[in-house]
Simulated scan of single mutants.
Amino acid sequence: MKKTITLLFFAIFIFSCKNEVKEEQNSLKGKIYTEINEIPELKNFEFQAESMIDYEGKKSNQYKFGISQFFKKGKYVLILEEKIRGKSKDISNKILDTIMISNLKEDEIISLCTCRVNGINNSEIIAVVKDKNNDAEYLNKIVKAWKANSKNGRIIPIDNLNGIDCVNESYGL
């Protein structure tokens, strides 16, 4: 019994340490940029898309958070960023969190800020969605999804994908 408790304590300790290391690995967190080539780690990435998040679910013309998508050789980097307005008209971006998505299958796409949960729009959802031969207005074959949480500045995996669907941007074309 004593051995079991010792092993359990040791396992919890190891797991806790592992989480802390993972937290530290995001070397982009906190960096500020106007152009992506200002960030050495992303210098050769190509900008693909950007969407703004309705802050705390409220529609506003003063958008504060966005998600940008960059691509390089089969790897997508998605950045949750805070928009910082300076004295000039330039807007800088502060990186709050990032995720990397790689090895998308031919029938998979990334959907930014165009998803719903149980029929209610939620611009904080990022999803990998199956898109092959789909004529529906909304795509509901969600492979993986995350929430870009504008309150705590983190991109968090969503475990329960039930009820999530995303706009089919090819619908009607």
Rank of each mutant, 00 (worst) to 15 (best):
S92I: 00
K75Q: 13
K43M: 06
S123R: 04
I39H: 04
I14T: 14
I109E: 04
G30N: 10
F45D: 01
S16N: 14
M52R: 07
I53A: 03
V117L: 12
K132R: 15
T34V: 12
Y76W: 12
R85P: 10
K105D: 13
N121W: 10
N103L: 05
K43C: 00
D131H: 06
L42K: 06
Q25Y: 09
T34Y: 11
K59T: 08
I125V: 07
S123D: 10
D131G: 03
G66V: 03
K94F: 03
N19K: 14
K132C: 01
I101E: 09
D54R: 07
D131P: 00
C17W: 07
F71H: 12
N37I: 11
K59P: 00
S51K: 06
D97A: 14
K72I: 00
D107H: 08
M52E: 13
L104D: 09
P40Y: 05
N61P: 08
K75W: 00
F13I: 11
V21R: 07
Y63Q: 12
D131W: 07
T34C: 04
C115L: 06
F15L: 15
K64F: 01
G119W: 01
V77H: 04
C17S: 15
M100N: 14
N133R: 07
I84N: 09
I32H: 01
I84R: 11
Y33V: 06
S111Y: 05
S111F: 03
V128H: 02
E81H: 03
F65D: 01
Y33L: 08
I120L: 12
Y33D: 01
R116Y: 05
L112A: 07
E56N: 14
S51T: 11
I79G: 01
K22H: 12
S102A: 10
D107R: 01
M52Q: 10
E82L: 07
K89T: 14
K132Y: 13
I99K: 02
E50S: 12
K83S: 03
K73F: 10
E24C: 06
F70D: 00
E41V: 01
G66T: 06
Q62K: 11
K72R: 14
F47I: 06
F15M: 12
E82I: 03
I120T: 15
M100S: 15
S88A: 05
A127F: 04
M100Q: 15
I125Q: 06
N121D: 13
I79E: 01
K31W: 00
V21I: 15
I36A: 11
K94N: 09
